[in-house]
Design a protein around this nucleic acid. Structure first.
Length: 831
RNA sequence: GCGGGAGUGGCGGAAUUGGCAGACGCGCUGGACUUAGGAUCCAGUGCCGAAAGGCUUCCGGGUUCGAGUCCCGGCUUCCGCACCA
């Protein structure tokens, strides 16, 4: 190292100084009560893993921080809080691995996170920090559960659930990825357990419809639409008889017989009610409750055997093997359209979780049914034909078209109708005869929120021998999670808390009799479904969220996070907010006015992973380059909403830029005006940055500032303070420490973040002379320097005066295209 | 299979939305200053060509005075969901 000039840019020293100063002066404090033009900028809070802050976290937070700092410079009172999603399997598993109680481990991780976050120079008001593991927080998570319980939106049912044999817990559908546990990758099994559910399906329609009016990334909205999975169709009732009864009823046409709904009637869901005449058999999911009832004695053993076999099968095996298997139950149902008896099968290609767990099989017009029918020799009947085909045209494969030329055949009075009309007509007909109705079905399932684990908020329910299921009174909250030595989950399907008798044995809040607590804890996604409501009210212990503050700060103005939460956290949060709205507790239905998904960072073109050993450690880079350079580089390496490729040596470019900013500012002349040409460039730059920051185009904003820096220093001139000071304000959101330091050195007493935002003069930002492209027959042949307001004649004259251009124009132009201020195209020759 | 993206120099990426393709940065080449350079500064840098010029945004068509951008067909790739009836 050479002997540094006295005023060389020492990033570490500058950053230390300003972080201390911000803390001392409360620069980042938000007056949540009196602040004017409130702007709530939120980032998805991290779960405090032991590895510390991931560069992906920092990428997300920095992008949000820049947005927040910019809004503050625009005159808003900005609220930028931070917290920790510290309950849950990820945290608990790490504690298990180390053999340390999470109650000791997690606070240490949080301390480490806080240290790293402070070092990154985020504009966080630390007075509003929260952790979901704090009983002052989860008290209100439990309260939230009780609000849903009161409204009948929390209920218990014994259900087939996804069970992870490694994590030893139930998983929500959203946590099962391709049949494997999202966390550990183990194959998920099916188990039957008594579970708590939230009725999110009641809100499916609203969750879907509201999406249209949300200012969210399109990809996120698409993912939610996909997940909610609305499909229009019909529910159709198939009456079950034993074989002999049906033989007598076969000739009875719909409407002429009375068909009371019997307990054995089978309801199916279909999106193609128009094909009901082609339903040649029924299929029930193996675990369908009616299976036992309808199975005949002859078939009982094979049905039971099949059931046992498929239930043991893990989800993966079932999905990978496309081969259809199934067995006949021995029972028949009547096709309500044809009056004919059709056999009832069970097969694992029908899922209990979707629709009614039963389908009418139309092998002629459904690929899966066709394959199954082929395998088991079941009849295939054509009921739809396109032009050129008749009812007798054989089907080599399922004909699934439902578009215009497709018309009904073999369907009695509905023959000849186009599919779309037939759908309606047949549903109406079935409805008139009490055999069906139009319904909308959703793919979305109710949200299973119980977890048989230790590290979560206990579900605030007590089971009394006399009173049954009793909610814990709100005044008794929180139900504290006890510190237990043995917090290991086991195979029993019950939580480790069930081993702590002193904790679960309680008196009934109703009658004082013998009772026991619910020993399951709630899903981490419940913790994170409402934290944004809590932030402004963190100091309050008497309410979950203060109504006045909620009204002032919410909905969140800008929410930034990863798209991996597109259907988990974001959907649950919307649901919870809707419930609170319906309860009258919040005045809005949607929690996040604006959401943008940030991209992901890869390193040297490859995904970062511990096994590859290419994980970026923020600490190291901040140590080497400083937080300002690191922040700015993260924002520069690619478009924020797409992410980019982290290349270690790339940081040097941004560092050089800050070095030059430093030198230019320190050396800047303090008297007189700036150079007119440079000032023009400055105003252009202000305009560009002002446009790019709100739209998260951070990479191009930085590029514009670099370009300006090049102009500022061209020819090794000494810049003027009028040229550099506004640049410092523009840089401030990206590199807050150096900006504060330089701003102070310019002689300002207040923070640069309270200095406002430089305005640009549109006239100055416009060019005096522009370079206009001149094309001949669409090919660029040269450029001309002209005034921006030049006319076509003027531009043409200037172009023809340029010999290099004129030589391509042999004859008089046949046509001239003139785009004012941009381009001149001279068309000569033919045409 | 369904849904959402993306294909541009050696690399990361720009392109006012149909108007000079390659901004900005990395890297590379040359030079200056240096005992030294993984520091700093200056110049150059899409490809072919000595030049004139030609070619160039995954491939093939089309629309247009003009296409990275719009239309049709195909290929590659990333991400979600996936036996959803």
């Amino acid at each position: 190292m050479t002997h540094a000039a006295i005023d060389a840019y020492d990033a570490a020293a500058v950053e230390r100084k300003w972080q201390a100063r911000w803390e001392r002066d409360g620069t980042n404090h938000t007056d949540v009560h009196a602040g004017v033009r409130p702007y709530y900028t939120l980032m998805m809070f991290p779960y405090p893993s032991a590895e510390g802050l991931h560069v992906g976290n920092l990428f997300a937070f920095t992008g949000n921080d820049i947005h927040g700092r910019f809004q503050r410079q625009q005159g808003h009172t900005v609220f930028e809080p931070m917290g920790y999603d510290a309950f849950g399997i990820h945290s608990e598993n790490y504690a298990l691995k180390l053999g340390v109680n999470p109650m000791e481990l997690i606070p240490k991780n949080i301390d480490n996170f806080r240290r790293q976050l402070k070092r990154a120079g985020l504009m966080i008001d630390w007075r509003y920090e929260l952790s979901t593991t704090d009983s002052r927080y989860y008290k209100w998570t439990q309260w939230l559960f009780l609000q849903l319980f009161k409204r009948g939106l929390a209920y218990q049912k014994r259900a087939a659930v996804n069970w992870c044999p490694v994590d030893k817990t139930v998983l929500a559908n959203e946590q099962v990825i391709a049949g494997e546990c999202e966390r550990c990758g183990a194959k998920v099994e099916q188990r039957f357990l008594e579970q708590w559910f939230f009725r999110i399906t009641d809100y499916a329609g609203r969750l879907l419809e509201n999406l249209d009016n949300l200012d969210w990334s399109e990809s996120t909205k698409a993912a939610q639409r996909n997940w909610i999975g609305r499909s229009e169709g019909a529910e159709i009732v198939f009456q079950v008889h034993d074989y002999f009864e049906i033989a007598g009823a076969a000739s009875v046409a719909p409407g002429t017989s009375e068909m009371p709904t019997a307990p054995t009637d089978i309801q199916v869901f279909t999106t193609r009610p128009d094909t009901v005449f082609g339903a040649t058999y029924l299929v029930l999911a193996p675990e369908h409750p009616l299976v036992e009832r309808i199975t005949t004695d002859e078939e009982r053993s094979s049905v039971l055997e099949y059931r046992a076999r498929t239930s043991k099968q893990d989800v993966v095996a079932r999905k990978v093997t496309k081969d259809k298997t199934g067995v006949f139950t021995g029972a028949y149902a009547m096709n309500p359209a044809t009056g004919e008896p059709i056999p009832i099968w069970i097969a694992d290609y029908v899922l209990m979780e979707y629709g009614t767990g039963a389908i009418m099989a139309v092998p002629g017009h459904d690929e899966r049914d066709f394959e199954f029918a082929k395998t088991y020799g079941l009849p295939i009947k054509r009921v739809v034909a396109a032009a050129g085909a008749t009812e007798h045209t054989p089907l080599a494969e399922a004909y699934t078209d439902s578009e215009d030329p497709a018309r009904l055949v073999n369907s009695g009075r509905f023959n000849g109708l186009p599919v779309s009309e037939a759908k309606e007509a047949i549903v109406t007909w079935l409805e008139e005869h009490g055999r069906g109705r139009a319904i909308v079905n959703y793919r979305l399932h109710d949200w299973c929120i119980s977890r048989q684990r230790y590290w979560g908020p206990p579900i605030p329910i007590v089971y009394c021998e006399k009173c049954g299921t009793v909610p814990v009174p709100e005044s008794d909250l929180p139900v504290e999670l006890p510190k237990v030595e043995d917090f290991r989950p086991d195979d029993s399907g019950i939580s480790p808390l069930a081993r702590v008798e002193s904790w679960y044995r309680v008196k009934c809040p109703n009658c004082g009799g013998t009772a026991r607590r619910e020993t399951d804890v709630s899903d981490t996604f419940l913790d994170s479904s409402w934290y944004y409501l809590r932030y402004p009210s963190v100091p309050r212990d008497d309410v979950a969220f203060d109504p006045v503050l909620t009204d002032k700060w919410l909905p969140v103005d800008s929410y930034i996070g990863g798209n991996e939460h597109a259907v988990l956290h974001l959907l649950y949060s919307r649901f919870i907010t809707m419930v609170l709205h319906d309860t009258g507790l919040v005045p809005f239905e949607e929690p996040f006015a604006k959401f943008r998904a940030h991209g992901t960072i890869v390193r040297d073109g490859a995904k970062m992973s511990k096994s590859r050993g290419n994980v970026v450690n923020p600490d190291e880079h901040i140590e080497q380059w400083g937080a300002d350079s690191f922040r700015a580089y993260l924002m520069f390496l690619g478009p924020y909403e797409e992410g980019g490729d982290f290349q270690d040596r790339g940081i040097s470019g941004v560092k050089r830029f800050l070095d030059r900013l430093w030198t230019s500012s320190i050396e800047a002349q303090r008297t007189g005006d700036g150079d007119p040409a440079v000032m023009r460039k400055l105003h252009k730059t202000i305009r560009k940055v002002t446009e790019d920051v709100p739209t998260l185009n951070y990479n191009t904003a930085i590029a514009a500032m670099m370009e300006y820096m090049n102009a500022l220093r061209a020819g090794e001139r000494t810049p003027h303070i009028n040229e550099t000071a506004p640049l410092v304000q523009l840089v401030a959101p990206f590199a807050p420490h150096i900006a504060e330091e330089l701003w102070e050195r310019f002689g300002h007493k207040r923070s640069v973040f309270d200095s406002g935002w430089p305005a640009f003069d549109p006239e100055l930002a416009a060019d005096e002379l522009i370079t206009m492209a001149v094309q001949v027959n669409g090919k660029t042949r040269g450029t001309i320097q002209v005034a921006p307001e030049v006319t076509q004649e003027g531009a043409l004259a200037a172009a023809m005066a340029d010999a290099a251009i004129a030589r391509f124009v042999a004859t008089d132009p046949a046509r001239v295209i003139f785009v004012p201020g941009r381009l001149l195209n001279i068309v000569v020759g033919g045409r």
